[in-house]
């Protein structure tokens, strides 16, 4: 019985960044425990549509295949998620696969997530340790703090929270929910904390933290279960205190 069982996919195709999207239907032979990536690989191996016509192999991005790199994010049956960890058995058919259109589409399912990396650069989401001489070891981090900070470090810039957020769109320059977690992570680091104000200042700039409207879709959608809304409120507190301190002065 399992021999001739098939899975139906409807894939949104787009030949280039400015091309008009169109849909193509595929029937893929079912295999046990298959995920969306394995089905896409099967279609790529044999790019024949359900009606028997030959087509070009669909394009997408992937790397790790175990939900840690964030490259294969796409909209599957309406929800943004990683194609590698989305099991076909748990989906209703036909399975609709689309690119995350919050980002510029490069081709088919491949999107350009550069804006996320630009955002991380903008808010200085790194720990500056470079100097002209050895500065020695930094201060130690308390174990209980390390534990919650580790959760924030799981962010893989996959873009799912931006796709889910109603305030990330072409009408705003809001950088997106993931930035909150990364700013909180670097501000929590004992060495990173030394540049806390700088990081907050750049995150209070255009497109910054004020763009959040508390729809809380990000925390519902994050594949890594990062407590983004906790980071949002925590960074809001840091920003409120920082803005009052810098206005009234504190030394």
């Amino acid at each position: 019985m399992a021999e001739n069982k098939t899975v139906v996919f409807i894939i949104s195709r787009q030949d280039g960044p400015d091309a008009t999207p169109y849909e193509e239907k595929f029937e893929v032979p079912y295999r046990q425990n298959m995920n969306v990536i394995s089905a896409l690989m099967e279609i790529r191996r044999n790019p024949v549509k359900a009606n028997g016509e030959k087509t070009s192999p669909p394009q997408w991005e992937m790397n790790c295949l175990e939900e840690v790199c964030g490259a294969c994010s796409m909209v599957i049956n309406g929800k943004p998620r990683q194609a590698c960890s989305t099991l076909v058995d748990k989906l209703t058919q036909p399975i609709r696969v689309e690119p995350m259109r919050t980002f510029p589409v490069v081709r088919d399912l491949a999107v350009d997530r550069s804006r996320m990396f630009d955002a991380l650069k903008k808010v200085k989401a790194w720990i500056p340790i470079d100097g002209t001489y050895d500065l020695g070891p930094g201060p130690r981090m308390a174990e209980n703090k390390r534990q919650w900070a580790y959760e924030l470090s799981k962010c893989m810039t996959c873009g799912v929270c931006l796709e889910a957020c109603p305030n990330v769109n072409s009408k705003t320059d809001f950088m997106g929910p993931f930035v909150f977690g990364q700013v909180e992570l670097k501000n929590a680091h004992p060495t990173g904390e030394m540049n806390k104000e700088e990081r907050l200042e750049s995150f209070m700039d255009e497109g910054g933290l004020q763009g959040c409207g508390n729809s809380q879709n990000c925390v519902q959608s994050c594949p890594k279960g990062i407590p983004l809304t906790t980071s949002i409120a925590a960074i809001n507190r840091q920003a409120a205190i920082h803005s009052l301190k810098s206005f009234f002065g504190s030394r």
Partner: peptide
């Protein structure tokens, strides 16, 4: 500097 955007929102 906190942007005008931030101040307006708050």
């Amino acid at each position: 500097m906190a942007s005008r955007d931030f101040v307006n929102r708050r």
